[in-house]
Amino acid sequence: MEESNQIRKESEPTKLIELAAELKEKIKSEERVMELPGHLKQKFIHEILAMLRSMESSSANTTALQAAIESWRRQTLKEAKRIIRGEIKNSTILPEEAGIVENALSSHWSVLLEEIGLWLPVEIVHKVHDEKPDDEPDYDLETLPGKRPPPECHAELHTDYDGSAVKWGLTHHQESAYDCCMSCLNQAKNAKPGQKKCNIWVYCPSETGCYSPDIYEHKNQECWLKFSETPKLNFKDTYPESYRATHPRAPIVVPWVSGVVST
């Protein structure tokens, strides 16, 4: 038995195991460096919330909200860089945290946005003249992945409509908001007599999933088909501060895209 154990120990790739352990520790160390401290994350969330309240976000469109958040990011990033250069002494950001803040607001800004509950679809830019073709509609600056939903979809960004589920989104995924809306229109068109016809579609475009107060984990590309005689909003643009106080997992901005279709 002792001889067998000795042979087994000698045959182990000890050098490889040591290198793997070192690499694992290095990755953990880098993750700790990149991770934004909890108190700073809360500070940023409160600042963004205060900014959105000052804009009367209930009436502001999503483009204005995203522009304001981007302006906040640039100002905070500029402050962090000045702290690093020693140009600012008195700041709520500590000198030893300035590098982490700079990293989070530049290289890992999209990750931080997802954690907060924001998603920024890529803006379509026409490279030749940087303007839209004459025959293209004047869309909002925010764009969704995939084909643009047609007018009858009435797509609304950062919106969640209530309704009875016609098709369960947990098991019904679509490539884009366009495909989700088309699925709703097709269901309504082909519904059997007495069957509820879809008139509401709700889609999750966020790569990290979408928040909901239920017990399920809602993932990217979930497509919910719903019906309601009188469609009502669950949430629009941002979750109210009073709601977030009782639902600490809720992000700032509603991550869903939805619409009430014209049938």
Rank of each mutant, 00 (worst) to 15 (best):
E2F: 15
E3Q: 14
E10G: 10
S11R: 12
P13V: 05
T14P: 00
A20K: 15
E22I: 15
E22Q: 15
K24I: 11
E25H: 14
I27E: 15
E30T: 09
E30F: 12
E31R: 14
E31W: 11
H39K: 13
H39A: 08
L40K: 06
F44D: 03
F44C: 05
F44W: 08
A50S: 14
M51H: 09
R53T: 07
S54R: 11
M55P: 00
S57E: 13
S58M: 09
A64S: 10
R74V: 13
R74A: 10
E79S: 03
E79T: 14
I83G: 02
G86I: 11
E87H: 15
S91F: 01
I93P: 04
L94Q: 15
P95Q: 07
A104G: 09
A104F: 09
A104I: 13
L118Q: 03
P121D: 08
V125L: 13
E131P: 00
K132Q: 07
K147E: 11
P151Q: 10
P151S: 10
C153T: 02
T159Q: 04
D160V: 00
D162V: 05
A165H: 08
A165Q: 12
A165K: 09
V166A: 04
H172Y: 14
H172R: 03
Q174G: 02
Q174V: 01
E175R: 02
S176Y: 00
Y178H: 13
C181P: 06
L185S: 02
L185D: 00
N186L: 12
Q187C: 05
Q187K: 11
Q187M: 05
K189M: 07
K189D: 07
A191Q: 03
K192H: 13
G194R: 06
C198F: 03
N199I: 02
N199K: 02
I200K: 01
C204S: 04
T208V: 10
G209A: 10
P213Y: 06
D214F: 09
D214W: 10
Y216K: 15
E222Y: 12
S228F: 02
S228H: 07
S228P: 04
K232M: 08
K232Q: 09
L233Y: 01
L233V: 02
N234Q: 09
F235W: 04
D237N: 12
D237Q: 12
T238P: 01
Y243T: 02
T246I: 12
T246F: 04
H247N: 08
A250W: 00
I252A: 02
V253L: 06
V254Q: 01
P255Q: 06
V260Y: 00
